[in-house]
Design a protein around this nucleic acid. Sequence first.
DNA 1: TCGATAAACGAACATATGTTCGTTTAGCAG
DNA 2: CTGCTAAACGAACATATGTTCGTTTATCGA
Lengths: 199, 199
Amino acid sequence: MARITRSNGERTAAAIRQAALRLIHQQGFAAMNLRELAAAVGISPASLYNHMTTKQSLLFDLMLEHMTALLEQTDAALAAAGPEPLARLEAFIAHHVLYHLERKREVYIANFELRALDPPNAARIITMRHDYEARLIGLLEEGAAAGLLNLGDARISAYAMLAMLTGVCTWYRADGRLQPAELVALHTRLALEGVRRKG
Amino acid sequence: MARITRSNGERTAAAIRQAALRLIHQQGFAAMNLRELAAAVGISPASLYNHMTTKQSLLFDLMLEHMTALLEQTDAALAAAGPEPLARLEAFIAHHVLYHLERKREVYIANFELRALDPPNAARIITMRHDYEARLIGLLEEGAAAGLLNLGDARISAYAMLAMLTGVCTWYRADGRLQPAELVALHTRLALEGVRRKG
DNA sequence: TCGATAAACGAACATATGTTCGTTTAGCAG
DNA sequence: CTGCTAAACGAACATATGTTCGTTTATCGA
């Protein structure tokens, strides 16, 4: 066989990314093999290489796209929230939860497959993750400076909050009992009460 | 070569478990290969099979030992905490953080390599994890019933707390800035303030 | 219409990997 | 001492896996 009628490069590349997200999320990057990926897309293993350079670059591209989108959308949400520190913090939390519900597979992969990246690729993703953490740490410090928050330690508080907020995407099911808006409300309260200034 | 002078089955088996914990934690179960594990222990790949039946069973044994210890030690900590709901909740949190700091590799593996287990093995570990979660949910419900806590949803609160408290072992370094006792204090406050009844 | 390119294929390669086998020898019970 | 067992080895097997190669053919701009 050769080229398939109505085949299209963009569509195939997108199908590969989607299938890879699903398989890596289910099994992990090392456990996913390219024959299985190809079968999921409906092409031969060799054809994958018309749309990617190596298995490693496929993983890196997925992570890079995710981190880029996360940073951009976070900045947009903060810009829309205005200047008030607590409002900005709440906007960050709400956006984080919603984004993580919506793209749980990407998030999971970016968090747990870092070790599968070549060191140079890993370094680039780690830098972007630090940028993201720095935004929350900055918000917490703003809130503390304004006398609105009471932090034991801004960095630890940020890590703890991120762990809690990100945790939601390990068990969230779109067909589950709770709606995204409810999860945002519950987690906003759980996160904020731990750092809000009392009295 | 044949049997090595002063070789000892127990010692080798323990060395295999330790090396496996380290390698699986670093690279993931699928990415760890038995030749590398054998080299880390200082024996040949074939010799591994004097101490384990398959690679799969090695992973399962590690997880089973961890979950068993976690459940036993948690129950001991709760028994020592007495009957008061808030004291029991604090004891749970403190024990959880300390255990997770001390055995971060086991925890990480038990959390993220479930997908690498055969379905029957996975089912056994999942049951034990549910048992563990049920203890926290029970504590939260006790506290709510006593009027001490104000929960949006006991199960969600429990998941969020566990995610936050477990998150500590993804970044904790024994040679880091903060001592375990400080981390316990910080996380106890962060976790409790989100659920404590106000006024 | 036609040629260049894109996008697919089957087949194969080189290597990696879990596991088994037959053998060897140290340690220990009798 | 002696023989059984535990614990190691090298070698090999069967399969899995990332990747390449040469080829084929649909698509599309000129």
